[in-house]
Design a protein around this nucleic acid. Structure first.
Lengths: 129, 129
DNA sequence: ACGACATTTCAATAGTTGTTGTAATGTTAA
DNA sequence: TTAACATTACAACAACTATTGAAATGTCGT
């Protein structure tokens, strides 16, 4: 996953309509849905849905397949997994077990850091400008 | 995770600058970084960075803590896990093992999801279509 | 080939978002 | 209490995004 790809994926999902479409297609699974079904379920004018489907397809969030006079769309879940990988790459400077201490309470944070014996900046020294 | 929250999170990450900031802070881990450090590393005018940090904080992607005259920012990874959960809710109409099948190395997917503490289905049986 | 249907393209318009310089706020250290 | 610093708020403008109806494209069944 490269930066421009990640940006268009996030932009795709930052619209309520496209988010609804994506979740609906995730729910539909490998069977997918044709454009008209989606438009009917979401109550959208065809031109508007087409605009959003195009954006999502270009972002590779969806695959399309022509099926007679219908277009069948499917969600690409693998892409989502890659995206999460991109976000958490080099997580915690190479000590991902630190992030696993999820809740952002300072106690947990400190415990996790102590476990791997890494230094955490406690002060503001060394900041230039 | 509710729909409006998901939308603002995706909108947050759909800007290259905010994406860079988020990944930098994920990399920084629990120690976080103060605003000036981030601005210096990314070469951004302070007013512009402030605009983006505010958006990300409102989206809850970041936590801020005041530290003297600095603001220390940290990435909230737990939120990302919730977000992925929201996207894949009701995946494949309640048969998530179906979605797990698809392409793209399962090894990578598992590694990525493990990193943020989410379960991944193991089987790929029962795929229709 | 024809009429009906599914979907996309186009052009106009309305609304939202990002960037900048400059001013304001709040904190520190002397 | 000042001067210096870190950060945020404001206002103006440019650039982008979404929505719509109407027209175009392409496919089907007869």
């Amino acid at each position: 996953m490269k930066r421009p790809a990640a940006i268009v994926i996030f932009a795709s999902l930052s619209s309520g309509i496209r988010l609804d479409v994506y979740r609906m297609l995730v729910k539909a699974g490998p069977g997918g849905m044709v454009a008209g079904e989606v438009a009917a379920k979401l109550g959208l004018p065809p031109a508007n849905l087409s605009f959003h489907l195009k954006a999502m397809t270009q972002a590779r969030l969806l695959d399309v397949e022509q099926e007679g006079r219908f277009q069948r769309y499917r969600a690409d879940l693998a892409l989502m997994a890659d995206l999460v990988g991109y976000l958490t790459e080099e997580c915690c400077g190479g000590h991902p077990e630190v992030c696993a201490a999820l809740p952002s309470s300072r106690r947990n944070r400190k415990a996790a850091l102590d476990r791997i014996g890494t230094e955490v900046p406690q002060s503001n020294e060394g900041i230039s400008r």
